[in-house]
Design a protein around this nucleic acid. Structure first.
Lengths: 134, 134
DNA sequence: TTACTTGCAAACGGTTTGCATCGAG
DNA sequence: CTCGATGCAAACCGTTTGCAAGTAA
């Protein structure tokens, strides 16, 4: 393994703040929510910077990205190791993680059988959670 | 309490055009692509109308909607009966349909066990197809 | 006739970008 | 000192909406 250092990302105060917030939370958040959290912490940072950092992190696969039905992007720090999917309540927005080796296998072999390579997949299950329809 | 009005959608020339295009194609398309196809057929119709129709159709579950990574909405006529998912090539954009009762069951029971109701799900598998990496 | 539909144009909301300035290396 | 990072403001882009005119029922 090469001691790859192509990541020429400079260490800036703002960049660290963004990571800090991402690390503090274990659920998806939008760029604007992240910005709000920093403002709440009295950190001065521009929205543009957040979008820049987030895009860089996404390209480097350091965060996972998903889109809400409204077209808004949600980000979350997500180790490449723990691949999983989400069960989200459409009412309260709460997200639970979901894993299933079976489904992972199904998706992979299906695509392989079709001659695909470099396979990836996304699964989103939504509904109204018990607390919300109780 | 509920003054339920049934679908009181008027039959208009434009509404029919939109359905016509949706019926002609068996793959997802954006509102703008749909508009372009109508223009190509010398049909005069406003983009706003297409968005209106499409939104109404989506609310009535007459079309399926999904979002591209770029946040653009794609629509497709899709009978409620034939629920299926997609295997898409990231290079050529080709889409194949995929079905699996197993996975449908898995998704449903998973959400039910978590106490969810009104469950729905989306699965997107992507990769590079045989023709593209051959 | 009634009131839903159309469609132009303007508003919107999330995201990206131009560019002058800041600051890490 | 250099060159990437920052962030305000403005551009972008897909989508929604206000409203006057058109039209199905």
């Amino acid at each position: 393994m090469a001691t790859e250092q192509p990541a020429k990302t400079r260490t800036t105060r703002q960049g660290l703040w963004v990571l800090e917030i991402l690390n503090e939370s274990d659920s998806f958040m939008s760029a604007q929510q992240l910005h709000a959290k920093l403002v709440a912490k009295e950190k001065t940072i521009g929205l543009a910077t957040i979008y820049n950092r987030l895009r860089a992190l996404a390209e480097a696969h350091e965060v996972d990205v998903l889109r809400t039905e409204a077209g808004e992007a949600l980000y979350r720090r997500c180790g490449v190791d723990g691949h999983h999917h989400h069960l989200r309540c459409r009412r309260c927005g709460n997200v639970e993680e979901v894993e299933s080796a079976q489904v992972e296998t199904w998706a992979r072999s299906l695509a392989e059988n079709a001659g695909f390579i470099d396979i990836s997949h996304t699964i989103e299950i939504t509904g109204i959670c018990a607390a919300c329809h109780g």
